[in-house]
Design a protein around this nucleic acid. Sequence first.
DNA 1: GTTTCTGCAAAGGTTTTGCAACAAA
DNA 2: TTTGTTGCAAAACCTTTGCAGAAAC
Lengths: 157, 157
Amino acid sequence: MTAPLSPALQSRVDDFIAAKGLRRTRQRDVIIQAAFNTTDHFTADELWERARRIDPTSSRATLYRTLSLLVESGLLKEIDLGRDQTYYDPNFVDHPHHNHLICLDCQKVVEFEDIHMSLLEDCITRRLGFRPETSSVRIEASCDEWRLKGSCSRRRA
Amino acid sequence: MTAPLSPALQSRVDDFIAAKGLRRTRQRDVIIQAAFNTTDHFTADELWERARRIDPTSSRATLYRTLSLLVESGLLKEIDLGRDQTYYDPNFVDHPHHNHLICLDCQKVVEFEDIHMSLLEDCITRRLGFRPETSSVRIEASCDEWRLKGSCSRRRA
DNA sequence: GTTTCTGCAAAGGTTTTGCAACAAA
DNA sequence: TTTGTTGCAAAACCTTTGCAGAAAC
């Protein structure tokens, strides 16, 4: 579990650290590695668990402080999956305009990108007298597979 | 500040109370009245303040319990305005498909509805193998008025 | 050496809950 | 009466913060 960051990502991290006059520490490296190791969304606590598997000494305080920095830098985004907790999404670096579909049957989260959606948002926003900056779309849906077959490849139980 | 609920709304409230075998209490009436008195979005605490202006004896516990019921019944929806707190939106009863645009300059929240958006979401969702249930779109934008005139009719300061 | 960062533990803020008294049906 | 509801206070949760020691530069 010591897969290094991609060069592009590492370079964005380095740039951010340099621009803000921050220091590169073992704890930050571990947390960033844990965050970008996979494309899964995660809560603060899940990320803490993952980071501790790499290095058991990291603290929650540092985790939260690092999360703030990553969100501020744009490397990570907070997303609202309609659950109780805040989730973080590491995939905006590669796909800056994606959105989320959440299956109410199997809880699966599907990321999608659609140029028509972006254009339409732009159009709506300008007509209202604003200039679009960012947007997020969350679709909650039910699973065809679950409805038709009574089972779902993604459903856990 | 004792404006009664609209008949349509009152009837939906009554239906919900009857269907769940709940009781109609003074505290619930007051909270519901405070929630639907205006079309403003509010936090739990803001609603508590409003309710106390009508009847100062209501407690936070009852407020939270009533909020849960209203959300469960569909009369109220939790919305994510990108701020720290959860906001509640009382306008879904009249406009079940509306979305939100938030101005980054003046913090104004504009509600909009767009049939093309709904159709596109439907299309995207089905193509991914799901059936759409609900969706929410949040657009963050900057204010033309503020950018062009250096002032904004909605900006407080 | 300076300055920033970390971990701990305590504090903050919001929401939930157990329980005895109370009120609706 | 019976059953659901309320208010209180405590608990639960997640996140932030003050501070002294440790680590980066």
